[in-house]
């Protein structure tokens, strides 16, 4: 078994265990490379037929390429797609240009997802987050006292790890399951290459620029890059010092600052 078989089988084990425990489960798909990889792993775990719905949260500000990719793949891979939109806030004109970005993310992503979870009564959600993705998320958990235990649980009792990885995004009544937590950014690209997975072509360089992380148009900016194939990207990621989300909105720090202040009752 090589490295990627190991990563894969770990993920598949978690996916199957989660499905066994929570039949009323769904997966959150951002259309980005990580959650598309997760989607592929889920497909593999159930021999090509995904037995639960896939949720896409549509802020209405995504790249057109992302919508096309979403619709194409859901048809090709034949899964049930739930599109979640916070229609009320969209009707009020909520958008990144309005106030702080956190408010926009909260309404159009978090609350839209909450609405979907409530409507369908999901008990657990699969998410494609990775431990190395962003310092704030990973690091704090990494330092968490239960992390040692987590390592052990990871192999033996996946049911208990899930509530260790509470993500700030979602209400408390459901579990979050993170089957690709142990993948690094480089692992993802190597795995995409090995499996021949489709990706949104925004990741590939056009006129000297490419997106390393994709989301809503106003909050993403491309990085300087000539990587126009997956192989080029692998080489770039291997040698890059810049953080993956460096192209995301500058006030990401403000968002986290506000979150921390609010957690203590300020703001």
């Amino acid at each position: 078994m090589d490295h990627y078989d190991m990563l894969e089988s770990k993920s598949i084990y978690i996916i199957r265990e989660a499905y066994y425990r929570f039949r009323n489960i769904a997966m959150l798909w951002s259309v980005g490379k990580d959650s598309t990889t997760l989607l592929w792993l889920i497909r593999k775990a159930f021999f090509g037929k995904i037995p639960f719905p896939i949720i896409h949260i549509d802020t209405s500000y995504k790249f057109p390429e992302m919508y096309q990719f979403r619709d194409r793949l859901s048809k090709e891979w034949g899964f049930e797609l739930i599109v979640g939109r916070n229609e009320e806030k969209l009707a009020e004109g909520m958008g990144p240009g309005k106030g702080m970005k956190l408010e926009c993310c909260t309404e159009l992503k978090t609350n839209a997802l909450k609405q979907v979870i409530k409507k369908y009564g999901f008990k657990a959600i699969f998410l494609g987050i990775r431990r190395d993705e962003h310092g704030i998320r990973a690091k704090e958990r990494y330092f968490s006292p239960r992390d040692e235990q987590f390592q052990w649980d990871y192999e033996n009792q996946p049911a208990e790890i899930w509530d260790q990885y509470k993500s700030f995004l979602y209400a408390e009544e459901h579990y979050r399951v993170h089957p690709i937590l142990h993948f690094t950014e480089l692992d993802i690209w190597q795995y995409i290459k090995r499996e021949g997975l489709p990706i949104v072509d925004l990741y590939l360089s056009k006129e000297g620029k490419r997106y390393r992380s994709i989301g809503c148009v106003p909050c993403c900016s491309p990085i300087e890059s000539s990587a126009s194939t997956i192989d080029d990207i692998i080489e770039e990621v291997r040698t890059s010092k810049q953080s993956e989300r460096a192209g995301r909105a500058q006030d990401k720090e403000n968002i986290y600052t506000m979150q921390k202040l609010r957690a203590l009752g300020y703001m």
Binding site: E140, R141, F143, S144, K166, E172, Q259, K260, A263, L264
Partner: peptide, 15 residues
């Protein structure tokens, strides 16, 4: 050394 700046404050709400 496993340095930690702050605990996860949002956890206070859930656990």
């Amino acid at each position: 050394m496993g340095y930690i700046i702050d605990v996860d404050l949002l956890k206070a709400r859930e656990d």
